[in-house]
């Protein structure tokens, strides 16, 4: 395949490789299984969020409420289990969390698809509502004694091993959920008319309406889907952290959207790939996990991520503009 420098994917992949090369020079222990498993583990929740966020961007909208949905679903599910059904297996807990996520997503969908309100405004509003409702009516106390089902899940490991120096590394089965989400989302986006309709709506909402795409139903599906993904990400987050903290997750939404945009999705809608999204997430996790290795204080993280966003999205945009100017 031809190397296309105007694509975000190429650029992000290049930056990841360069970053790894520098880190490997500074710390010879960088290129090892623990680094990889840390990276993959760190990408699970962020990755599931990002796939959902990408779907919304492709459809021509934006959702900033998914972290609040995740926190709500995660905390409410844990509380339900702790108080009423401590014996439920982990998969039942996951289904409950996803159902709560879907319900909250449907709430977004009702305002966006039903009343035709702007997506950013609706989700900014619901972000605040979901979070406030959770902390006021559901609870604001940390639950550190998780129900046994969720604890069991956190112990399920796909890969487990010991390093030469005796330290352990492991990759939890939760990672398989990220893989599953990617596969399902890919199938929807590229193999069903529903997915093509999502792309089409992002390209031109008016055209989509004119050729008879059920725009409202499709939009409603998008927000329910993102809510479901957020519920899943939330419960996985709590299980892996072995604590349900209602103050968690909210605040992450802009980093997630940044990762998606870094991977080439356009805020104006219609464009975005799963490869790009996953690369964007990988880069952000890498920067978070590894700046310390390079001897850079962790407070520089947000500066580094900000610079990456500016360069990563600015460069292709600038190149496209120059190409357009040359063509004119």
């Amino acid at each position: 395949m031809k190397l296309d420098l105007t694509r975000n994917e190429t650029l992000v992949a290049g930056v990841i490789l360069a970053f790894c090369a520098i880190a490997a020079v500074v710390d010879p222990g960088f290129l090892s299984m623990p680094t990889l498993t840390d990276l993959l583990r760190g990408g699970i929740v962020l990755g599931i969020f990002a796939v959902g966020a990408m779907l919304v961007l492709v459809s021509g909208g934006i959702d900033v409420s998914f972290t609040a949905v995740a926190a709500f679903a995660m905390y409410t599910t844990t509380l339900l289990l702790v108080n009423w059904a401590p014996g439920l297996p982990w998969w039942a807990a996951f289904l409950v969390a996803m159902a709560i996520g879907a319900l909250l997503g449907a709430f977004n969908g009702l305002f966006i698809a039903g009343f035709g309100l702007p997506t950013l405004i609706v989700t900014l509003g619901t972000l605040s509502i979901f979070r406030g409702f959770l902390l006021t009516f559901v609870g604001s106390k940390l639950i550190s004694n998780l129900p046994p089902g969720m604890r069991d899940f956190s112990r399920l490991m796909m890969v487990r091993g010991t390093n030469a120096d005796g330290s352990f590394y492991s990759l939890p089965w939760a990672f398989a959920f990220l893989v599953g989400v990617v596969v399902v989302t890919w199938t929807i986006l590229y193999r069903t008319m529903l997915g093509r309709a999502i792309f089409a709506m992002g390209g031109s909402m008016e055209s989509a309406r004119r050729i008879g795409i059920p725009v409202r139903a499709t939009q409603f599906f998008v927000y329910v889907y993102v809510g479901t993904m957020a519920g899943l990400a939330g419960i996985i987050h709590a299980s892996m952290a072995r604590v349900a903290n209602p103050f968690d997750l909210v605040g992450l939404e802009l980093s997630v959207i940044a990762a998606v945009v870094l991977g080439g999705a356009r805020l104006a809608g219609g464009y975005g790939t799963l490869t790009g999204t996953l690369l964007g997430v990988a880069l952000i996790v890498l920067v978070r996990n590894s700046l310390i290795v390079l001897g850079i204080p962790s407070t520089w993280q947000s500066v580094a991520i900000g610079i990456l966003i500016l360069i990563g999205t600015g460069l292709p945009a600038w190149q496209a503009k120059r190409a357009a100017a040359r063509a004119a």
């Binding site: 992002g202 390209g203 031109s204 050729i211 219609g270 464009y271």
Partner: peptide
Amino acid sequence: IFQDFSLFPNL
């Protein structure tokens, strides 16, 4: 066929 063609530029 509308004046703006109603196509999907991204497809």
